[in-house]
Amino acid sequence: MLELRLVQGSLLKKVLEAIKDLVNDANFDCSATGFSLQAMDSSHVALVALLLRSEGFEHYRCDRNLSMGMNLGNMAKMLKCAGNDDIITLKADDGSDTVTFMFESPTQDKISDFEMKLMDIDSEHLGIPEAEYHAIVRMPSSEFGRICKDLSSIGDTVVISVTKEGVKFSTRGDIGTANIVCRQNNTVDKPEEATIIEMTEPVSLTFALRYMNSFTKATPLSSIVTLSLSSDLPVVVEYKIAEMGYIRFYLAPKIEE
């Protein structure tokens, strides 16, 4: 028996909007730790890792570890039917091939339930090794989203270079080139507007903008994004989900042949 009650149901709506275009089908894993997902896109270039900790739910009952295969497009369709202020409860019985989403309006005057078919998904669970990153950039998520969108109108790839001076996002395309430098500024009034760079050595990596733009669909989940970069390692683009956990995107770099 599984029963997860999330008072801030909009979080789950936002999570699905953030990942449904990257991954078609995925297993949601439910354990005492929380509700999690790890899935790669079909070309094995990007991976999304989601964790919503059990403590973040108002009610969290998961009698035994359960893996539920869901089509994320269909799940997003169902969650779109929940109001932004609704409380969302996920329910599944042991051995059932369906999951039920229950939506309650804040005033309890409208209660809906949507039952979705589960699917069997063969997915490989990857071990993500702990890594020491050469550079960690923390910046406003809206700024990062704007940069990725702007650069993708010029080129297909972005070179992210971190030095003591700041973080540089560069692209080139048929019409020309673009460079955007964000300097460290931790003296702003609001912490969510700061750009903070921790660097042990300079790093420069090239990534496909198509994926970066897809990751920025998680912007509504957090005002801050963290980019963790090391030479020859996938970048980690992390959006923390307040009080609950995180959504992390891993993207393999482009490599000179």
Binding site: H44, H125, L126, P129, K254
Partner: peptide, 14 residues
């Protein structure tokens, strides 16, 4: 142009 790598060589399956 640089070639797109995949994640398989970074993350071990288990």
């Amino acid at each position: 142009p640089p070639k797109q790598g995949t994640l398989n060589k970074f993350f071990a399956g288990n």
